[in-house]
Design a protein around this nucleic acid. Structure first.
Lengths: 124, 124, 124, 124
DNA sequence: GTGGTCTAGACCACC
DNA sequence: GTGGTCTAGACCACA
């Protein structure tokens, strides 16, 4: 996996994990990859993955069983969805709208771009 | 002024300055506030404003006359507009669209929120 | 059985066994449940129960007859009582008292809570 | 400072910091020692103090101003008191009471020991 | 100067 | 095998 350098790696991994939960790739109550496993797959230091998992544990998305590993929490999908939705609505949207007003970009234009984006992402 | 936690303060101030230029509050070839003046108004360390001005100078939005202060560049409005538009289209939009797909948020919903936002910002 | 997160599971099981001895549910010189039996009842890994039994054997509360299983030691009740009393007086009390001072909790309040606790535990 | 080895060092330091807040030694909105400062005083690695401060930040007891350091939160005393009180009442007391019942220790005895403890701690 | 992140490597308790 | 903690040391952004 490649990482952007304007966001902490452990947060980018956290996003990745969150999406796996959100999309149902990793189901509730299932074990997720061990720290060492994910670290070697992501080519990062295990400590970085530990940071990711601690962060997600604080959010209540995953939990740990000692000696066994980390597991997806019950109700994690809803928690992740709520968390992402809240931060999108409260943090992202206002800045976007402000830019749209300043730059004279209309919702119609946004919708047009969105349709293009959707087609491209379906191809993948 | 209040600052968000997830973006560098000097960049938030840079945004503020850019908007003043974009909206014509600070006109081209006009002198902008001195570092110390702006720093005390914003309640930040003067070094932080220096960083802001250096950043804006690198972008070509402002320039410095030694001993006199900083001034809005000729053609700054267009430069600011182009810069903002580019970063909006290339950096912001993809993330937004990705979130919309993941969370099932429709362009209609976005447009609805945008109308609300517009009304609120007109009041100010 | 449910386990707390802040104490090793094998120690929580050891406590449980100790209480059975203390209360006379498991009498001296009697055979106690096999590792596998207890493990399946407690829903833990057999290795964990082995650790528990090793710990209790080191304390002299139980002993093993090869091929037959584990048995409650002679004089185990007194040993358990002494062990628990010592660790209570030396390890638990000082921390409790420190918290009481810091938080302004009085012995009267403790006694009050204790009465409530006694009533609830009689019901079981 | 000397550390017990049955509790993580970063949590022992967190307790220490919490008590400083609780006792008013470090007042609300005041700056607390920098990571490096406290680390060298405590003779631990700076990373360990960072863990402490992150933990306390998650609890809402302290917050960070970028480039300036960590500060005691508004209302921190009440938060600390509530946190300590809750964990005392819910985690510590039940175990204590259970032991008292099992060992036949009476509240009167506890109170007696508490008086002794109070005298000793006043001398310090 | 401040905190934030990351790596490398070690040791431990636990299951 | 699992996670949890700690050390050592590095580099960076920020004020």
């Amino acid at each position: 996996m490649e990482f952007k350098d304007n966001e902490a790696i452990y947060l980018q991994i956290a996003n990745n994990v969150s999406e796996n939960i959100l999309l149902g790739s990793w189901e509730e109550e299932d074990k997720i990859p061990s720290v060492r496993d994910l670290a070697s797959r992501m080519q990062v230091n295990p400590n970085t993955v530990i940071r990711t998992y601690e962060f997600l544990e604080n959010q209540g998305f995953i939990y740990t069983k000692r000696g066994l590993g980390f597991f997806v929490s019950e109700g994690a999908i809803d928690k992740v969805k709520k968390y992402k939705r809240d931060s999108f609505m409260q943090s992202d949207l206002p800045g976007i709208f402000r830019n749209m007003l300043l730059l004279g970009i209309t919702p119609v234009e946004i919708e047009h771009q969105f349709e293009i984006f959707k087609k491209n992402s379906q191809l993948k």
